[in-house]
Nucleic acid binder design. Structure first.
Lengths: 149, 149
DNA sequence: GCCGAGGTTTACGTTAACGTAAAGGTCTTG
DNA sequence: CAAGACCTTTACGTTAACGTAAACCTCGGC
């Protein structure tokens, strides 16, 4: 299958209106899309963060999988471990029939993450000031280098 | 030395005005202050991020060291590797007598970090929205649990 | 004089998050 | 039908950032 935005099926004429967003993806497509390796994606599955369907051996990812991968990678960029991400993701999935204790626990976790975000915001603000400062100084020194060097 | 905010010296009466902020810290003090282990602090030194003085064997940290540790930990929280942090820190130190190439390189790195910060800001914004959403749903489900369970 | 609370070095262990390699299956295109 | 371009599993390797343990020094107080 030498590339070709994989639609789920050839779609015969009588299929009628496609069942709302029936797009699917191969592992390679997702990998390119998010600039990660296929290894990474398989690893995330192994860690319980993804659960694509299979056509034979081959993994078939749908829109939901893509979104989940996107969220996972975003979480990673923010310094969350895969375990943390999985915890939220799994609880989110189990929500509909979750009991009180689980739901409260979920909300607790979310509150915690939010605190984390707040701190990061502050860290970023401070770090930006630092960077500004360092760059300003660097430019000063650079400017003062009339001809020497 | 059963704890006692280590001042550098007993400071005899004739010392005159203390040479601007002469406070020093033991490794244990810093560890508590930043909630890390002493192992971590020694490790950072080994990685070239700190270079405290020695009184005999013992490490003596001053204000500059403390600030550097603070910045290092902040960088870590933002997902920078120690190598990245060291790169900036070392270039910053070498700045005064840095040549053009080095300075330009430093500015380049800073610009890169800044882009990183921008992305993180966006990521946080999005993540906060996600968290809001998940929590809202969780509370809904929780509220709908009149008496069952 | 020794005990406890600090400090030190050396060195091996651990964990997360993949990388990398081998060996093989399945299309499809020249 | 052979060559690519994909996909698969299995399994060992790697790196960063410490943790943990052992064995030691040193001071101030009782």
């Amino acid at each position: 299958m030498t590339q070709s935005p994989s639609t789920s099926a050839p779609a015969t004429a009588q299929d009628g209106p496609l069942p709302r967003q029936r797009r699917t993806y191969s592992i390679g497509e997702l990998a390119k899309m998010f600039e990660v390796t296929t290894r990474t994606i398989r690893f995330y599955e192994q860690e319980g963060l993804l659960a694509p369907e299979r056509r034979g051996q081959t993994r078939i990812y749908d829109e939901k999988d893509r979104v989940r991968l996107k969220l996972t990678l975003r979480g990673k960029r923010l310094g969350f471990s895969l375990a943390e991400i999985r915890e939220v993701v799994m609880m989110y999935d189990a929500m509909p029939d979750g009991n009180r204790r689980q739901l409260r626990r979920l909300i607790e976790i979310l509150t915690d993450k939010r605190r984390n975000m707040e701190r990061q915001l502050e860290d970023i603000r401070l770090m930006q000031l630092e960077l500004d400062d360092v760059e300003r100084r660097a430019r000063e020194v650079l400017a003062s280098l009339g001809d020497s060097d």
